[in-house]
Design a protein around this nucleic acid. Sequence first.
DNA 1: AAAATAGACAACCGCGATCGC
DNA 2: CGCGATCGCGGTTGTCTATTT
Length: 335
Amino acid sequence: MGRPPCCDKDGVKKGQWTPEEDLILVSYIQQHGPGNWRAVPTNAGLLRCSKSCRLRWTNYLRPGIKRGNFTEQEEKMIIHLQALLGNRWAAIASYLPQRTDNDIKNHWNTHLKKKLKKLHGTQGYCRDGFSSSASSEQISRGQWERKLQTDINMAKQALSDALSPQKSSGLTELKPSNGNSYAKSGAYASSAENIAKMLKRWMRKSPLKPGSTQQSFDNMFSAGVTTESANSSQGADDHSRKEEEKKCSKEMSEAFQSLFAFESFDSSNSDDFSRSMSTEASLSLQDETKPDLDPHAGQLLLLEKWLFDDAANQGKDYQFSDTSLDENPKFEFLL
DNA sequence: AAAATAGACAACCGCGATCGC
DNA sequence: CGCGATCGCGGTTGTCTATTT
């Protein structure tokens, strides 16, 4: 006698999203900002359920998302965090900016689990899955913690590099509290990047007639995806990258090219957004960290403290947008 | 070249948590 | 305080692509 599925209605579309749907969704969120998902399908004119819209946005269209190509540092970090937190993918994702919980979960299930299993078979399973030939039972707690600390330092360095302010440029800071600011933010550039990638894939699968595509995308853009963002300041690097992308996309229609002009092709520009997102996620993680429930609470707190201390130490260069630690009483104990 | 199989990943589903009335 | 609506998370499934036979 469970609750009936929210998407169990007639006329609600399921399955793969089309580029048109993506553009409608991005366009809508560009104007109104994310949130109030219940109203999104109706207001945006999408034949999807609210859940599907939210999922599509958070896992695929959201700016600042990096997909695929996990680095070894990221993998190590995921393995460490999985050992500490278990299958709490959202919490793990909060420590990996630009990665979504779904992406991490998929990567874990398809790659890392096998990797660990393989290592388990050849050298004996170790909690970090990478470097020990002894079983975890044989390693003393002290040894394991030292090893954990070493690897965490490596992952920390990688994270620090990834978040380096030098890599971000020209992205206006998002202020989620002000919905209209979304419309002016360059953050949508990487949404379009994601869409563009998906469009290429989609074109491979089902080549469209240029005419119909043109019309369809013209309608889309006139409906709300303005070129305003495209006109925002972009660096020379972005320009050259755009050119390169255009070369690879000759077969695409003019409408596609206007989409390319709309975006920056530099996902690192979304670092500010990623930071704000990861901060939010960290806040939620802080909320859900319940020492009385979590057997690894000590390690978890250590890890969190490491992360937040680092952020605090880099305060000058590395400022969380929107929600700063020192403004939040929840983090007093960490500062 | 075609069929079968495996791998990868996007999306769905169900449940618990949270929010607002 | 109770209840319904909504959101967010994790597990699972479905589909597409690549590889092997």
